[in-house]
């Protein structure tokens, strides 16, 4: 989901990674020290995280940050 702030669009794959790992919003939020709604807003593209939070999200999923966030739309998987 993209987040647009001052004309800068940031896309993320948090929802996909979370579903793939079977992690609930609340579990992810507790691990990151944020409100579960913040995870929801991130997934809906209605909030763009700080660099610190973005790095912690990537760290939680144990992937490089560019796997989770991108300035370009992520390619769709499947049809």
């Amino acid at each position: 989901m993209p987040t647009e702030s001052r004309g800068e669009t940031v896309h993320n794959r948090i929802a996909m990674l979370r579903a793939e790992r079977g992690v609930s919003r609340r579990q992810l939020a507790e691990a990151l020290g944020v409100h579960y709604q913040t995870v929801g807003y991130l997934e809906r593209g209605e909030y763009s995280p700080s660099l610190h939070l973005a790095l912690r999200i990537a760290g939680f999923f144990e992937v490089p940050v560019e796997v989770v966030f991108s300035t370009e739309p992520f390619p769709r998987i499947g049809r």
């Binding site: 609930s24 919003r25 609340r26 709604q37 995870v39 929801g40 809906r44």
Partner: peptide
Amino acid sequence: QPDEPFDDE
């Protein structure tokens, strides 16, 4: 503020 995301738990 937009509609709040639901709690999936």
